[in-house]
Write a protein that binds this DNA or RNA. Structure first.
Lengths: 320, 320
DNA sequence: CTGAAAGCGCTAACAT
DNA sequence: ATGTTAGCGCTTTCAG
């Protein structure tokens, strides 16, 4: 094996005139060390610019790793969520690592192995990953944001309530002919809670409502095309989208088409709040979601066999 | 040391009835292995769900790491840049890791050590990090996006040209009284090239131009406040901002103030192009920047002593 | 409080 | 083509 070129504890030990065991101890604040040797070792470390190599940092859990798997950070919702997660995890002395879902449904297996190898402390997922039959996920330190994966605890906002609030708002504005547009095929069937919430209200008032979806594609350009196909004529009073990005695209398209229905979104990231303050949408409490995800995960890391709910619901706010 | 709980190559070896060396060879596609043993080993690996632990994956460079240090991904420009970097690095069989600049100016040192330990392959930075005197950065696999850090090669778009294009556009629209507003104090002094470009054009035509800046703060809310302080009266024909986010904030504020100067931005991320198609701005070629960053870095990893320019300039497009 | 030494899971000569 | 064995840099008993 090629010898590492940076300084090792051996070098530090030699310089400080102690054994490598002692150096190890001061690095890990382990066992007792006399103030005197401590100082001389610290000095040697500084002088040589010594640092524990990464691979040993996670072999020995010096740096507790959390893997975060997201579909993309191009959507401000996820970008913000990740930044909050990263912040909180840092506060709690963990280190977050971001991964994108590459369409490999079995990606989770690898992380599970890493957990078993003791080399990652926990995982946060918000991608539609699959579970593998032979593994028991019950006591594993994994938490999900808004995705159902087997028995893994899930955190999400109250989508049903959000859908209702949107619908009520739309009704209060006197809209009668409505399209519910899902920005995502998966969410369309089985019907997701946002749509269910909207429908429950609309149906109560016998409102004329249609539903449609566009296939999920991350590139806005392609979504655009699908939207133009879904909305060809100005026949709706209001178009209720299941996410903000779709809403913005719809808004843009309808303007071009020369008609201006009410368009509503869903998610309400800070970015959207700041730069599209006029969009009627529902705010997912990103910061609170991140906090809860982290806190639950850490709880699960420390007490694998504690009882966890299958679902944690966070309240939602209408932005109008 | 606590024994790792996942299966090890030892287990695989036992099951496949070969030596651990053989298992190691099939894992690393090293040396010669008979098709027969290969198969039995592969089977054993599958059966046990064996996986090379992370720490060994990077100890032995099985997975070549690239560390990417960014200020934030809350700005779509950086979010997109990172996604492109991540994509390209994956294509090239590297694995990208995202880190946020935590205000620790000496963060680079740690990465340098990791490089020397052979445990990270390269680094891409876009944060104002400091360099440490004792280290020679010349042949180190580090590349910068739009930041001057000592002798590290830098990739950026042609900010000077971008500034000129913006100014020409503004003039062509007949604007006479202009404010150049920097969204970032650091960029204001020493004057950055975007502003220099604008000024060079405005001055040629003897246009009445003022300059101002707001202190950089990532939270848009705080920026808002600063903007309201910078722009209290409708005295400008046009306000040229050095980034899109600031431009959006300014636009929003001026509307509220009841006057509508021409507002221009800078960056032109896909997000902005898609959702603010009306904003006059300059497009940084994010994808090309990412590609160049990656390609140069990989070149530098493989040929540390090749000659590299100090600066690589990518062309810019006016979006109007 | 500190050092010697065994061991971690793996890779890489060196044999055969 | 495969096994044996000596490391790798560090942590962790176990003595003293």
């Amino acid at each position: 094996m090629s010898r590492q070129s940076g300084p090792t504890i051996k070098d530090v030990a030699r310089l400080a005139d102690v054994s490598i065991a002692t150096v190890s101890r001061v690095i890990n604040h382990n066992g007792y060390i006399s103030p005197k040797t401590n100082k001389s070792v610290q000095d040697a470390i500084k002088q040589l610019g010594y640092r524990l190599p990464r691979h040993l940092r996670d072999q020995h859990q010096t740096e507790k790793r959390i893997e975060v798997i997201l579909p993309s950070i191009t959507n401000p919702l996820y970008a913000e969520l990740y930044e909050y997660i990263e912040q909180r995890m840092t506060e709690e002395n963990y280190k977050a690592f971001l991964h994108f879902d590459k369409g490999d449904e079995h990606a989770l297996d690898d992380y599970v192995m890493d957990i078993k190898h003791g080399t990652v402390a926990g995982v946060i997922v918000s991608s539609p990953l699959k579970t593998v039959g032979t593994i028991n996920y019950d006591n594993l330190p994994i938490i999900t944001f808004d995705r159902y994966i087997d028995k893994i605890p899930l955190v999400k906002c109250d989508n049903l309530e959000g859908g209702k609030k949107i619908a009520e708002k739309v009704l209060s504005l006197g809209k009668k002919k409505i399209l519910i547009l899902s920005g995502n095929r998966q969410d369309f069937y089985p019907l997701n809670n946002r749509i269910k919430g909207m429908l429950s209200v609309f149906n109560t008032y016998n409102i004329d409502v249609e539903t449609n979806y566009i296939n999920f594609v991350s590139a806005p350009i392609e979504r655009r095309i699908q939207i133009t196909q879904a909305i060809t004529q100005p026949k709706y009073d209001a178009i209720c989208c299941t996410d903000d990005i779709t809403a913005l695209l719809v808004k843009d398209w309808t303007v071009k088409l020369g008609y201006q229905p009410l368009v509503t979104g869903f998610d309400g990231s800070s970015f959207i709040q700041n730069f599209f303050p006029d969009l009627i949408t529902v705010r997912q409490p990103t910061e609170e979601i991140a906090k809860l995800l982290c806190d639950l995960l850490i709880e699960k890391i420390n007490h694998p066999s504690h009882h966890f709910e299958h679902e944690y619901l966070l309240p939602v706010t209408l932005l109008d």
